[in-house]
């Protein structure tokens, strides 16, 4: 079982370095840097961390094909392998509806767009020319696994068809087993093997209320970026979804903390004290997963929380699994 950390580059690069170094020290295998357009660049942060850390793999993503051209994604991934070969990962997804709208993009035909994007990146990274002869003028120093971030059933099936790995979003946690099954079935139909990782929103603190309060903005961002259909599946009313979108877009985080109901935050995250976290992890369908990605705030105070969550995962990690792509 590979255990990774996801960090949002809302912190300065030096602080990301401290948290990543700590993650490496306590035994995490990789760090994903999430991409949000109003935080620091995940690509720049990845370059920085790859040059400072010795062992951790570093993933960029989730990038989407609407705001970043697939050729640029391939260019970034190949360039990063020159910073540190064999430690670079890339994740492609449909993007956050709300953020894309704010930037003026329309998320048209996301499954097709993501599928084409992954295929294009793979062709270019392998040194091949695209139709029309477009190619990178340099070769990547190593392979780069391309993950697909998936939430809905069609995207999960696509992930099985084209991804080296899949990150199943934490907002899908109540349906995790069903989601993994969709990916595995799809991969089996195409004779492929896909590394399946569940991405969990985590907030750990001895004060449970504080842990829950800290995770709520992250829950709101995920909900604001989700489809109405997905929200319905979770039993959320459209009025709440619409309000969260407005608040998230305006960056009114204190109001977000008031607006997200406790039960919704609890359902979509693993929040509580370290013992709550350990118990929740035991409830996960670990046997069908290849990896866990712990994302979100990790805790109101992320430095000690990183140590606590890794310690709590000891029994899960010990169960072992196949190698990462």
């Amino acid at each position: 079982m590979r255990v990774s950390l996801e960090i949002a580059p809302r912190l300065p690069l030096w602080a990301l370095r401290i948290l990543s170094y700590l993650a490496e020290k306590v035994g995490f295998e990789s760090v994903w840097l999430s991409e949000h357009y109003f935080n620091r660049s995940s690509i720049v942060a990845a370059t920085y961390l790859l040059s400072h850390l010795r062992r951790l793999s570093v993933g960029v993503g989730v990038l989407n094909p609407y705001a970043t051209h697939p050729v640029l994604m391939a260019q970034v991934a190949a360039s990063l392998t020159e910073v540190s070969p064999s430690r670079v990962m890339l994740c492609v997804g449909a993007g956050d509806v709300s953020a894309l709208e704010a930037l003026g993009y329309f998320r048209r035909d996301p499954v097709r767009a993501v599928g084409n994007c992954v295929r294009t990146i793979r062709e270019l990274l392998s040194g091949k020319a695209l139709n029309g002869g477009l190619r990178l003028d340099f070769r990547a120093a190593s392979g780069v696994p391309v993950y697909v971030a998936a939430q809905g059933p069609k995207m999960l099936e696509l992930a099985g068809e084209v991804g080296d790995g899949v990150l199943i979003n934490s907002a899908n946690m109540p349906y995790l087993r069903e989601s993994v099954s969709l990916v595995r079935s799809s991969a089996a139909r195409t004779g492929r093997s896909v590394f399946v990782e569940a991405e969990l929103l985590v907030s750990v603190h001895k004060d449970v209320k504080k842990a829950l309060k800290t995770v709520k903005p992250y829950v709101a961002v995920i909900l604001a970026g989700s489809s109405v259909g997905f929200a319905r599946k979770l039993g959320l009313d459209e009025e709440l979804l619409s309000r969260l979108r407005q608040l998230v877009r305006a960056g009114r985080w204190l109001e977000v903390q008031e607006a997200v109901p406790d039960d919704v935050a609890s359902a979509l995250s693993v929040s509580g004290d370290p013992r709550d976290f350990a118990a929740a992890v035991e409830e996960l369908p670990i046997e069908v997963l290849d990896g866990l990605v712990l994302g979100g705030p990790i805790g109101p105070n992320p430095r000690p929380a990183i140590v606590e969550v890794h310690r709590a995962l000891a029994s899960v990690i010990a169960r072992g699994a196949r190698s990462a792509p």
């Binding site: 912190l11 300065p12 690069l13 030096w14 602080a15 370095r17 401290i18 170094y21 700590l22 400072h52 109101p300 105070n301 992320p302 430095r303 000690p304």
Partner: peptide, 26 residues
């Protein structure tokens, strides 16, 4: 360190000061 890193004012730390902290932490 936790007080500084969890502050909403963390951007008041200059990159050079932050680099110094990161190096000391490592």
């Amino acid at each position: 360190l936790d007080i500084v890193m969890t502050s909403y004012n963390v951007s008041l730390v200059t990159p050079a000061e932050g680099e110094g902290l990161a190096a000391a932490f490592e």
